[in-house]
């Protein structure tokens, strides 16, 4: 009979034995070594029936198809633009995915996006060798102008957005800011400077306290207090 050695939501380190015997299945972030299931990363235990999965607590952003990301244009090549999206590999915006406008054959590409520009784009393809294609065609996808940009740990992004975007909508409404959250941990904010600073502080607070429960109420209180001070 197999034996489970960890509890739901426990923090485990690489190499820690999660279960013994063949009754449990190794999920993401774990591997099987003979009759043991072992943690491969630092993470939070997530048990679902007989499947043991680890939710990573740290690590670089892993690109996934259909993710919305914010990146910086780092190079202009003949096929399009190279974009740094805060992960291990550079991403690419090809000419046909860059804009709805017609781009003439010998156009100066820096007129559309120049080096150093920030864009919000959607990932359309990730190959096995991690070549990443981005698209700029779609609602909300644009070059980012004005505002401010902050960087948080990409594993904390789901917490910043909240269930059905509840958390981010709360911050948007209260501080009256435009906020765009990239799955890669880059967040763009635009609004009244005082509201912007309050929103930044609220997001950094979420990042710090993401593992605690009752966070939405806590953030609501934090912003209300901040608004009173303004």
């Amino acid at each position: 009979m197999g034996k489970l050695l960890v509890q739901q939501k426990q923090i485990v380190v690489p190499g820690e034995v999660l279960a013994e015997g063949m009754d449990y299945l190794p999920g993401d972030g774990t591997f099987r070594d003979k009759n043991q299931i072992v943690a491969n990363i630092l993470g939070l235990v997530n048990l679902k029936g007989r499947l043991i999965k680890l939710i990573p607590l740290a690590g670089k952003y892993k690109p996934k198809r259909d993710d919305l990301v914010i990146g910086r244009v780092t190079d202009i090549v003949s096929k399009g633009w190279v974009v740094d999206i805060n992960c291990a590999y550079p991403a690419m915006i090809t000419l046909r995915d860059a804009t709805a406008d017609f781009i003439p054959k010998d156009a100066d590409l820096s007129r559309y996006f120049n080096i150093g520009d920030y864009v919000i784009a959607r990932i359309t393809r990730v190959t096995s060798q991690n070549l990443i294609d981005l698209s700029m065609r779609g609602p909300m996808l644009k070059k980012l102008e004005g505002g401010r940009l902050i960087k948080i740990n990409p594993t904390k992004v789901p917490r910043v957005i909240g269930k059905k975007a509840s958390m981010i909508n709360l911050i948007k409404e209260k501080t009256d800011c435009q906020i765009l959250v990239g799955q890669n941990g880059l967040i763009w904010l635009n609004g009244d400077p005082k509201g912007e600073i309050l929103a930044v502080n609220a997001i950094l607070k979420i990042e710090r306290e993401s593992h605690l429960s009752g966070l939405t109420e806590e953030i609501e209180k934090f912003i209300d207090e901040g608004l009173k001070a303004i």
Binding site: P14, N40, I41
Partner: peptide, 11 residues
């Protein structure tokens, strides 16, 4: 390395 989220078999 563990803190950086690098996959590893053991410490």
């Amino acid at each position: 390395l563990a803190d950086a989220g690098i996959p590893m078999k053991d410490l």
